[in-house]
């Protein structure tokens, strides 16, 4: 074996504290998850029985799981689409220098730095059936017949949570999009302006094609986040009413800390992990091409 140089040894030494955190509290728990997913773990008797792929078989034949997966995909696509449109729109508006732009941008960023519990609270108040401003205005302008209980309605609960998720998550995308827009070389536009291309044409024929890959990278990263969004959904609806907002992360939580079926819970977690591997695979591929 090749001997390590002194430099390499010292380099590893500097890495030690973070590697220790990684090995003990990320890698080890993760291996624990894999192992547990093949066992039937009883929290109360502390008995562990090997179950082979039993957890996976029962999971894949469980209707609840497929329903939760479907909801998660719907939630992810809807939320991301909303966030992208809002974020890109605002990024285009903000991509010019004028007075006060700093203040405006920091206001747009506020939703993203709030504690999730505060976000959930703010919207639950506004969507409240009796005192909420949204239900009040919708009734006032005769858009709805009476006041609608958005979060208690099985058809409306998930879209409502998605709307909140859009509000909360768009700022991060917006900041990334602004940075992306600023990376487009100015010369690209010069010829187009001389030819008299409209703002719209410039956007679709210069800006978007140029940024295609960068936008894909940014959006991929967000996909992982939205797919695994637990806090907001839980704090808004707890997965209810009648499972209407039970996404995979909520399902994992319910199975683990609600039902104490750790084996089952970890097998769902492994499905989430599979998704993470696929998405990050795409991500790393794109990053490499970009370099």
């Amino acid at each position: 074996m090749r001997r390590l140089t002194r430099e390499a040894k010292i380099g590893y030494l500097f890495l030690l504290p973070s590697i220790a955190v990684f090995l003990c509290f990320v890698l080890y728990p993760f291996i624990y998850t894999i192992v547990l997913s093949f066992f039937d773990y009883n929290w109360f008797t502390k008995k562990t029985l090997f179950n082979g792929i039993g957890n996976y078989i029962s999971l894949f034949s469980d209707q609840t799981f497929w329903a939760a997966l479907g909801r998660t995909i719907f939630y992810t696509i809807g939320t991301l689409a909303g966030q992208c449109i809002l974020a890109f729109g605002i990024a285009l508006l903000l991509n010019k220098e004028y007075a006060g732009i700093g203040i405006i941008r920091s206001i747009f960023l506020l939703p993203w730095i709030l504690p999730t519990v505060v976000t959930a609270l703010a919207w639950r108040m506004m969507l409240h059936e009796r005192w909420g401003v949204i239900t009040y205005l919708l009734e006032l302008f005769n858009i709805t017949d009476g006041r609608v209980a958005f979060l208690a309605d099985t058809a409306l609960a998930l879209p409502s949570v998605m709307a909140v998720s859009i509000w909360r998550g768009f700022p991060l995308l917006m900041v990334s999009f602004i940075a992306a827009l600023q990376s487009v070389p100015k010369e690209l536009y010069e010829a187009a302006i001389i030819d008299g291309a409209s703002w719209f044409n410039q956007l679709f024929h210069i800006t978007l094609p140029y940024l295609r890959k960068l936008i894909a990278i940014i959006v991929l990263f967000r996909t992982i986040w939205v797919f695994n969004d637990y806090d907001l959904v839980w704090l808004m609806t707890r997965g209810g009413p009648a499972f209407a907002t039970e996404t995979l992360p909520i399902y994992v939580y319910q199975r683990s800390f609600g039902a104490y079926k750790f084996g089952e819970a970890t097998s769902i977690a492994m499905v989430i992990f599979f998704f993470l591997v696929v998405m990050s695979g795409f991500y790393f591929k794109l990053i490499e091409k970009e370099d």
Partner: peptide, 9 residues
């Protein structure tokens, strides 16, 4: 990228 819901249990 590792989500907390994967590690929490």
């Amino acid at each position: 990228m590792f989500p907390s819901i994967l590690l929490v249990l």
